[in-house]
Amino acid sequence: MPTRRFKIFRYNPHTDERPRYQEYEVQVPTGSTVLDALNEIKWTQDGTLTYRRSCRHGICGSCAMTINGANMLACEAQVHTLKRDPIVVEPLRSFPVIKDLVVDMDGFFDKLLLVKPYLIVKTPPPTDKERYQSPEDRKLLDGAYECILCGACTSSCPSFWADKEFLGPAALLKAYRFIFDTRDEGVQERLDVLDNKHGLWRCHTIFNCVEACPKGLNPTWAIGELKKKVISEKF
């Protein structure tokens, strides 16, 4: 069974003066993911290693982290595809570290709430059926509703590195998902949130978010559509 070395970011803000990196050697059977390796380390070598994990199937978004410099889900990152030795595992950039690989996502979710991530309707619902959405209208949301809110995109965004109050690609993609939902009646109040100095205009189409998204989504494109929407509403 092959053995791989892992160099893992360790930091406890309550006890450590500064972060450090710790190396571990792990036996990795074929098909092992980075999450499998982290579990192996935690369960058999060092129980103090801290990281988030849940579903193990790339859908809960808990285990997003920086692996060999790129943001990805640990549960989807196959160890054999990672060529660098040792494999460097770090917490998501630009979020405050709570401990080791666990980051504080409060600000991330605060911004998500700001864009009102729910259907806003003012007209009463039909009494005999649900609110109608044609298949064509539904297709408009493809590539927007699949976001798992792992934070990989926002953490990879240089605009977010520079301006921590920037809404970030995840919140903006969520805004797109509802603004372009033909059943939604809250376009204007969402656009008011997006059109501000920490909103849409901080995106400079760098495309890091596209590269980082583990679900293959394209927040940069969605942000471009939102910019066009704001411009067409204003002028």
Partner: peptide
């Protein structure tokens, strides 16, 4: 929740 300083946009300058 924090106030993220909404107010001044940037749409006009982005467009121009």
């Amino acid at each position: 929740m924090r106030d993220y300083g909404f107010g001044s946009g940037g749409a006009f300058h982005w467009f121009l």
